[in-house]
């Protein structure tokens, strides 16, 4: 019997879809029971959402004012205490999970497997290395407790349905350190969909030429209800903030539709988008590497093409 513990990612009120993706990954392990744990200052709404995910058999909540913002140094000791009786402890391979899971693994003296992309058995998994240029199959001995992060782009979210797993509040005996204090966050998404979970993503590269020119992408994105991304070159040039960066060193995404404008297609960018269902590339350079992996390519000047697309999409609607 495999007992899997998944750490819920949430923003205080809503469950992040990465949690349901971890559940799908966990369901790939045979003969498993799946428990989701929610650390929050007020976990009830998030716990209720987690309890409806198909495959979840139990939801645990740990309530503490200090969990209003997720801080790895505070969550890890409590997670490690709860994790003792589980065979596998999973978290999403988002910045939340990447920060938290290794700290937890070390407290458990357990190894961590990063970025599970495929489950072959309870002890055999696939993961990408070298920025996705190679895939390795990793085996772990059955008696070893395994901590892992789940590559969210590799799994569909498990559906929510009439499942209503029992919700249980637990008290952790671990003491919370005071050496790490949350100061604040800053984000500027202006009501646009989240890049990591959006069905459609519009991205711009260095060819946009300036931060102002990115506005032409924003208006197309808003027309399509799409999230906005950028290449590393565009971020490095200061045209777009770093949280918009798509690629191996930024966000790895798997939208239904990905449209790349003026992005040549460096390996590290392609690594971040290759799980997208449909890729569209628009570039002046007919030899740009991105055309090698695009489902639809169009050679031309994005400053002419985008207004035409906007008009065509409008008349189409």
């Amino acid at each position: 019997m495999n007992k899997i513990l998944i750490v819920a990612e949430h923003n205080g009120s809503q469950l992040n879809p990465s949690t349901a993706k971890c559940v799908t990954c966990a369901r790939g392990i045979p003969d498993a029971s799946i428990t989701v744990v929610v650390f929050a200052s007020d976990p009830i709404e998030v716990a209720k959402a987690a309890a409806t995910i198909t495959g979840v058999s139990q939801v645990l909540t740990v309530t503490h004012l200090a969990h209003a913002h997720p801080i790895a140094a505070l969550i890890a000791p409590q997670l490690a205490t709860l994790a003792k009786e589980f065979t596998h402890i999973f978290g999403p391979s988002t910045t939340f999970g990447k920060d938290l899971m290794p700290r937890t693994a070390a407290l458990l003296n357990a190894p961590q497997l990063s970025d599970i992309m495929l489950v072959e058995s309870a002890t055999r998994f696939k993961r990408p290395i070298y920025a996705g240029n190679a895939i390795t199959t990793v085996e772990v001995a059955a008696e070893i407790q395994l901590v892992a992060t789940v590559r969210t782009a590799s799994f569909e979210a498990a559906p929510s349905n009439h499942n209503s797993a029992p919700i249980e509040s637990v008290n952790s005996t671990a003491s919370l350190p005071s050496h790490t204090r949350f100061i604040g966050t800053s984000a500027a998404r202006n009501g646009r969909p989240d890049l990591q979970t959006a069905a459609r993503v519009i991205s711009g590269g260095r060819a946009l030429g300036s931060a102002e020119n990115f506005n032409i992408l924003y208006s197309l994105a808003d027309q399509l209800g799409a999230a906005i991304g950028a290449s590393r070159a565009a971020v490095d040039a200061g045209y777009a903030p770093s949280d918009m960066q798509v690629g191996q060193t930024g966000k790895i995404i798997s939208p239904e539709l990905y449209m790349a404008f003026g992005i040549s297609g460096a390996i590290q960018h392609l690594t971040g988008i290759k799980d997208a269902r449909t890729i569209v590339a628009i570039n002046k350079d007919a030899d740009a590497p991105i055309f090698e992996i695009a489902d639809f390519g169009l050679v031309g000047d994005l400053f002419q093409i985008i207004p035409e697309l906007k008009l065509l999409l409008k008349t189409a609607q």
């Binding site: 190894p111 996705g132 190679a134 895939i135 990793v138 055309f291 992996i293 489902d295 639809f296 390519g297």
Partner: peptide, 20 residues
């Protein structure tokens, strides 16, 4: 504790169509 037993190249996307 984690043994890498197999290495493979990643699955390649197939080049699509160029539009006019």
């Amino acid at each position: 504790q984690l043994k890498s037993v197999l290495f493979e190249p990643p699955a390649q996307r197939i080049k699509g169509v160029m539009l006019k």
